[in-house]
Amino acid sequence: MQHYLDVFIAILPFLWTGFVQTFWVSLVAIAAGSVLGFLIGVVRSQRIPFFHRLFGLYIHILRGTPFLVQLYVFYFVLPNTGIEALQWSSEMAAFVSLSVYTSSYVAEIIMAAIDAVPKGQWEAATALGFKRLSILALVVLPQALKLAVPPMSGVYVNIIKNTAILSVIGISELTRQGEISIMRFPRDVLFIYGVIALVYFVYCYPVLRFTRWAERKVGGTRVVNLD
């Protein structure tokens, strides 16, 4: 027992740096991905012929490939194109790929939520002489965003979990810090990964509970299937 306590105290600084990194990466990716996804979702909900299909393809490509493969594409393939702006660091590649990945899920949720607002709301606002953009901003989106809360928080759990994959390109987040700690204490592999799992659990579980709570609150209608 004393041994485990010693190991725990020894790896505590690593855990803390790792957690802070995980926390920031997930937060920034969630923010950027949500903004991007929101825009795409709103455009797609308007069924503008060309753009609807184009962004549909974008979503399918991002959903049809594993995040790990997308990360490798952003890390290896894009800097290889020779374009100056894409010669980014591994942090930037990690952040951009995670945000783009997030945006595909958010876009689907936002579109489904906008579609779930009854058509009569559109018609009534049109009858009152509102323009399309003001209907969207003043009538439909306020109702749609409420519907989007439960699935969005589900996606956030997913994003937090996916930050673990960033360890493969050397981002020093929680899982990577665990690997580093294991180099010091190779016999305590199980214990260290157990602690790492626990830290993720403490971060994700409240969000997961919030998702369940919000689902019940909104009325239990699951607008989109997660994953």
């Binding site: 979990k161 360890s167 899982t175 592999v189 199980l190 157990g194 790492i196 993720y200 659990f201 579980y205």
Partner: peptide, 23 residues
């Protein structure tokens, strides 16, 4: 179920890959 849903798959894979042979 809560543990699986709230921890990354990668960490679970590591737990099994490194941990199962010990247990």
């Amino acid at each position: 179920v809560a543990f699986i849903l709230a921890t990354p798959l990668l960490v679970q894979i590591y737990l099994i890959y490194y941990g199962l042979p010990i247990l």
